[in-house]
Design a protein around this nucleic acid. Structure first.
Lengths: 245, 245
DNA sequence: AATTACGTTTGATATAGGTCAAAATACATG
DNA sequence: CATGTATTTTGACCTATATCAAACGTAATT
């Protein structure tokens, strides 16, 4: 993460928290902003491997990622784990816990990170006063539902190559939205974690990446990825079940 | 669907819409109820196969299912489809569309059904006035996110038998919550649709059901299912990857 | 009641991805 | 810097599930 995002007027007020998701298309008035600022509360730093919260812990706040990278995972009693997402700056985590006031997944820092805690009660109060904020909160939750549907489609009906291509393109697009290169980036997660997210074994992830490289679709070197042929990657994702590379 | 759900005082006010999800633990005052009732708007009937909404159509309302059964599905450009859920009375559909004001999936009636349309603007207005309703709406959306995480776990790390056992137990539990038998019910969907939902081919669904039957876990006859051995089904779900039946 | 369309079951066979294992590489720690 | 630990790659082999195909039921339609 080197380059900063261009800050539009509407983003200044909460740029301290990098609340991309909250700030995006919001058209708050000056007065509303001041209220919003009372919300953007405690900031915290996390080291790689630290848990932001654990499954089972009490829900108090949503968290906006300022810098760094997180993963969320649900654990099955028998020890199997499923990575449910990778989150980057500007994204909000903790939405699952609203349902029961108990977190239903773990959130773990994949690198040293800073987050901004958003006490949920405060957020609800404010969103009763600020319809724009209310709408925004709803959109964020709905977006998460849509994202999950996309993952179901991926897990339920794509083969390994498509899953991996979709994964890389998704990261690419999210980096681009943050002002970073869409075609060259560093993976923050292990092959194992990618595999868990995509419903594949780590060996399959590794093999498929190698295969993409042989075919000049990407260039991989450990965690460094370069997307060499986006059009072909895109075609791969929207393809018939057994289309050739 | 033959037996009605027992109606608690808090459920009377909106029982006309069977808004189980909204009514569950809500402790509204008399006055609040009257306001809520202004919301529960248009009721509509759908025939089997009818679309409640389609992917791409404009978002106006959430829908509460009063009677009947629906499925939601997302379509991939190449024609592949993924069933993302089966919904029964008292459940709310349409949450995905809040994100962009456009529906991102289709909702199709699996049998003749009645729904109750909840204009979303009205719902947002009301939930600014009624914190209980606001909280409730948030919980419903969050619950959907949690449900989706569960499906990711299922699709990403369970094998066919576990998926199907989890599916049957989930239906069982939801029927039970509505006052119907948890152990004998009729599937409203085809093997094909079950397969799509579980990331399996219809033949695999059929074979696995037959296998369960041979092992006296269930009794299947076309769409009629009877769960004969819930404890064993439960054990099957929470089991090591390759545990024996 | 006969006809047709649709859904389900079952079998035989193929294959994508899993499993197991070993070597190679990167990364962290004293 | 050296040493140990974790991650990644690659190979050989295996298995769960997909695919293809045919027969069988069931439910709508004439």
């Amino acid at each position: 993460m080197q380059k900063a995002v261009s800050i539009t007027p509407t983003q200044i007020a909460c740029s301290s928290c990098n609340l991309r998701e909250f700030c995006l298309p919001a058209d708050f008035t000056e007065a509303e902003f001041r209220q919003l600022e009372t919300l953007t509360g405690i900031k915290r730093a996390y080291r790689r491997g630290d848990y932001l919260y654990r499954s089972g812990s009490k829900f108090e706040s949503l968290y906006a990622i300022r810098t760094g990278f997180f993963k969320t995972q649900v654990l099955h009693e028998d020890g199997r784990e499923q990575v449910t997402g990778f989150q980057m700056p500007g994204e909000i985590i903790g939405l699952d816990a609203i349902s029961t006031d108990i977190h239903t997944c773990d959130a773990v820092a994949l690198e040293d990170s800073e987050i901004c805690e958003l006490p949920f009660n405060r957020l609800e109060e404010l969103s009763r006063i600020l319809p724009t904020l209310q709408r925004h909160l709803h959109k964020i939750m709905s977006r998460e539902i849509v994202r999950d549907q996309g993952i179901m489609l991926l897990l339920g009906s794509m083969r390994a190559e498509e899953r991996l291509a979709a994964f890389l393109l998704n990261l690419s697009q999210r980096f681009a939205a943050r002002g970073y290169s869409p075609s060259a980036f560093r993976l923050r997660m292990t092959r194992q974690e990618i595999g868990s997210y995509l419903g594949l074994k780590l060996e399959t992830v590794s093999r498929t990446l190698s295969y993409f490289q042989e075919n000049r679709l990407i260039e991989v070197s450990n965690k460094s990825i370069e997307l060499l042929d986006m059009p072909r990657l895109l075609r791969l994702v929207g393809q018939q079940p057994n289309a050739p590379l």
